[in-house]
Simulated assay, not measured.
Amino acid sequence: MQAAATGPLGDSSKVQVGDWVLAAGNPFALGNSFTLGIVSAEGRDIGEGPFNHFLQLDAPINPGNSGGPAFNMQGAVIGINSAIVSPSGGSVGIGFAIPSNSAAPIVAQLIAHGAVARGWLGVSVADLSDGGPGAVITGLEAGGPADKAGLNQSDLVVSVNGEAISGADGLTRIIASMPPGRKVVLGVRKNGHIFHLPVTVGRRPAQIGE
């Protein structure tokens, strides 16, 4: 058995489109292999759930590469190879990797607790119809964290702890990455005014929307 390729975790927030990347894995059970390419895009949503935020790679990724690391040119792991788009089942140069900054807290939780606890506000959210920034609250879970904090349907969440929210998926990701019990401050637009509301993040129930 060949040893798996490993390396230190890098900072995926510093990855730029056009950066060179090495994808490692075990394609078609042939043994450890490396392929070379570039980062084609960031923040890709491939329809696999609310936590999509993949790096798109054009380095050939084939069945057997899933779970393998994607290295930058300094030898640091900036992604975990996860999926491909292919009409044939083989690589056509469209592969996806989970950014290292998304994977690191999940790995830490699994090591410490054996499970992943995601943060939850107890709201349903949607993008603005005009494509503007922020997430519109379309529904609230009675007794949930947002309901207790005084948020209402049609409120627009524009920031979390001062970090601007690009849309519904952005709000879902940032809250899900927080441990239950953490207190956050939401920037909320109500009737043309911005209010800052403290909210205690809850634990995301299984099989339920944000």
Rank of each mutant, 00 (worst) to 15 (best):
E163R: 09
V85A: 15
N191Y: 05
V158F: 13
V116G: 08
A176W: 01
A115Y: 15
G122W: 01
N62A: 11
K148M: 03
G68N: 01
Q153W: 04
S40D: 09
I111K: 15
G162K: 01
G134M: 07
A59C: 10
F54V: 03
A168R: 03
G49D: 05
G144F: 02
D58S: 15
V125H: 09
Q109D: 13
L55A: 11
V125K: 06
L55E: 06
I84W: 02
G7Q: 04
P198V: 07
I46W: 00
P198L: 04
F34Q: 13
V85F: 08
S33L: 08
K183L: 09
G64A: 12
P27L: 01
N191I: 05
F34E: 09
I98R: 03
L36M: 14
S159D: 02
D169R: 14
A117W: 00
K190A: 15
A3T: 06
I174M: 11
P50Y: 01
F195E: 11
G150V: 06
G64V: 00
S100N: 09
L140N: 03
S100G: 10
G187T: 04
A168C: 04
I106D: 15
G134A: 08
G209F: 03
I174K: 14
L57C: 08
S82L: 02
A76F: 09
I175T: 00
V17H: 10
L110M: 12
E48H: 15
A135D: 09
P180E: 00
T138A: 14
P50H: 08
N32Y: 06
M1C: 11
E210C: 11
Q2H: 12
V158E: 05
L128R: 15
Q109F: 04
N65A: 07
S66M: 03
A83E: 13
N26V: 00
V116R: 00
W120T: 04
S166D: 15
L55Y: 06
D19C: 07
G144E: 01
Q16P: 04
V123W: 00
R44Y: 05
A206N: 15
F28T: 06
